[in-house]
Design a protein around this nucleic acid. Structure first.
Lengths: 115, 115
DNA sequence: TCTATAGTTAAGTAAATGCTTAACCAACCG
DNA sequence: CGGTTGGTTAAGCATTTACTTAACTATAGA
């Protein structure tokens, strides 16, 4: 991978890790501080911070620091982009099934006519 | 990551690579042989095969070999799982916004009563 | 002011990723 | 049979990932 990753690369890659998916899950219920996000995990704080950095780089999460606490929140738009990509492939797949169905129906008709 | 990846880990990880997403895209329009899948890319056949292996391990793609050609197709159910996961987080996010809205409305009412 | 809290930076490491080339097999085809 | 086509395996390599520990900064509160 010489070329740099696209936004969608970053989003799916970010979601490919269970810890990061759990963080997104947690944040989908409301904002949380770094401390709160880290609390469920056995791993070190710097490790959590690195996951957070990946999530922020992907656009899935935003954060702002007030005083000494950083509060993180989901950016739903980015999650939507990922959902849209999947929905579009599902759509092409279904269009294909429709066409296949039409074809099979047409073939059946022809066979009926032949009989 | 000492523990082995979950199915969802594998799916999102598989979708995190642009080449693999393009392959899923291609396959969403209909089945293709390994040769056909490899054709758009500058990379070697073994590299394509490795991407294919990742896609198969994730469950996004299935394949069967007839004679000497292997034909690959999407398994839509796996794509659905990924879409469902995203949809569920979007749902919690929206529920949260609803509750926030109710709270704000209630607060506004209280303030009206106080006045 | 002293100290605990919340977060950050840097550097190092083991394992996983995404490729490569070389060698190989098995099926179809003239 | 012998060559071409389609796919596969193995080995190697540079890069990225997911952590770690140690050291550090800045804010909040007693």
């Amino acid at each position: 991978m010489l070329n740099q990753p696209t936004p969608l690369d970053r989003v799916f890659h970010a979601l490919g890790d269970p810890t990061r998916r759990e963080m997104v899950d947690r944040l989908s219920h409301g904002p949380a501080t770094v401390k709160q996000l880290a609390e469920p995990y056995a791993m070190s704080l710097p490790a959590v911070l690195q996951h957070l950095k990946v999530l922020e780089a992907s656009g899935l999460v935003t954060s702002e620091k007030v005083g000494r606490v950083r509060t993180c929140r989901i950016d739903h738009k980015t999650l939507d982009h990922a959902g849209d990509w999947i929905a579009r492939r599902q759509a092409s797949w279904e269009r294909r099934l429709d066409k296949l169905g039409e074809y099979l129906a047409a073939t059946a008709d022809e066979q009926n006519e032949e009989q």
